[in-house]
Amino acid sequence: MSYVLLTGGAGYIGSHTALALLRAGEQVISFDNYSNSSPESLKRVEQLTGKSIIQIEGDVLDPVALTAVFQQYPVKAVVHFAGLKAVGESTQKPLWYYETNVGGTIKLCQVMAKFAVKNLVFSSSATVYGDAQNSPLPETTPTVAMNPYGQSKLMTEWVLQDLYKSDHSWNIAVLRYFNPVGADSSGCIGEDPNGIPNNLMPFITQVAVGKRAQLQIFGSDYPTPDGTGVRDYIHVTDLAAGHVAALHYLSKEPGFDCFNLGSGEGLSVLDIVNAFAAVNQVAVPYQIVDRRPGDVARYFADPSKAKTGLNWQTEQSLQDIVRDSWNWQKNNPNGYK
């Protein structure tokens, strides 16, 4: 028996990937410090699948704790989610972001190398494309991050690329996410942000459930069909399937490669708000406010490389996204608490 180790496995994307891996017949270990997650998420994954997850509390900045995992369990591959992810916070605490996101990955890879475990899927971000203007964005788009969070993801990509160049026995897939949204259709697991959400969908669901009075929409004068910003929203279930596909890919196509995980479809903020209200028959009051500095009008993926290379593409619709988001929120108004 061998295991797939998920760093940050109890988080939003980690827990959904754990669910997908268990359903695909894999054995899973979660290594998480629970700074922005809850062990309750993985308890619910176990209930959904009837399978157990080895849950270890630890920090990727702690090589002793990481070493203990590899000493005790036969790990065959690692999916590396653990990291900090708030753009605004990263501008206030850049050293923390570089230490955790870049330094944590270096420590993880050092321990992996010690145990000759060299299959790695890395959780990157479309923020590495900066304020690129020409959507859809292929993987060949120049990378120019615009904030410490994006820069920490890009620097980590450089670290992993140099690691592969130095030792071709490594197999590394870098996955650049666009905008993860939604929840498992069961309503048992979903996005549970600490404090003020960083993303659109938790704001919408918290307004719909009565936790917030209204949604703020930043800008209505963009050169888009309805004037609001257009982004690429990917259902978290599809995103989780992308990680399973990436692990299969590494077993057949060793090396280093980057893939966009997105739908390839641009949806505006009002597209999301209106679909949420219509599908779920619930009001979402909103207010138009000024644009945010640095926001671009249109930003969405060219996912054709993932379709060809990983045999993966999104399957969930906008209706699925808004239905599953509301199903999670109304059943868990306070998240996992």
Results as ranks from 00 to 15, higher is better:
1 M>C: 03
5 L>K: 09
6 L>G: 10
12 Y>T: 06
13 I>P: 07
14 G>A: 13
15 S>Q: 15
16 H>G: 13
17 T>P: 15
21 L>K: 04
27 Q>D: 08
27 Q>I: 01
30 S>Y: 00
33 N>D: 03
34 Y>F: 14
37 S>P: 03
40 E>F: 02
44 R>D: 00
45 V>P: 07
45 V>N: 05
47 Q>M: 04
48 L>F: 05
50 G>D: 09
53 I>T: 02
56 I>K: 08
57 E>F: 06
59 D>G: 06
59 D>R: 10
64 V>I: 11
72 Q>K: 15
73 Y>F: 15
75 V>N: 06
76 K>M: 00
77 A>F: 14
83 G>I: 12
86 A>K: 14
87 V>M: 10
88 G>S: 09
89 E>N: 14
97 Y>K: 05
98 Y>V: 03
101 N>G: 06
102 V>K: 04
102 V>A: 13
103 G>K: 07
104 G>M: 02
106 I>H: 15
112 M>I: 04
117 V>Y: 10
120 L>Y: 02
123 S>G: 02
128 V>K: 10
130 G>N: 10
134 N>F: 11
136 P>M: 09
137 L>V: 06
137 L>R: 06
142 P>D: 01
142 P>W: 01
158 W>I: 07
161 Q>S: 00
163 L>W: 05
166 S>G: 06
167 D>V: 07
170 W>C: 02
174 V>T: 09
177 Y>Q: 08
178 F>N: 01
178 F>S: 04
185 S>W: 05
188 C>L: 15
196 I>F: 09
196 I>Q: 13
197 P>I: 12
202 P>R: 13
205 T>L: 03
208 A>R: 11
209 V>P: 01
211 K>A: 13
212 R>S: 15
214 Q>R: 12
216 Q>H: 00
217 I>N: 04
218 F>Y: 15
227 G>M: 04
230 V>T: 03
230 V>E: 01
232 D>Q: 02
242 G>M: 02
247 L>M: 05
248 H>S: 11
251 S>N: 02
255 G>V: 02
255 G>L: 09
258 C>Y: 07
258 C>V: 08
259 F>H: 09
260 N>Y: 10
264 G>N: 14
267 L>Q: 14
269 V>Y: 07
273 V>K: 14
276 F>W: 14
276 F>V: 11
278 A>K: 13
278 A>M: 14
282 V>Q: 13
285 P>N: 12
287 Q>T: 15
291 R>V: 13
293 P>D: 13
302 D>G: 11
303 P>Y: 10
307 K>Q: 15
311 N>M: 06
317 S>D: 06
324 D>H: 15
328 W>P: 07
330 K>E: 11
333 P>G: 04
333 P>I: 06
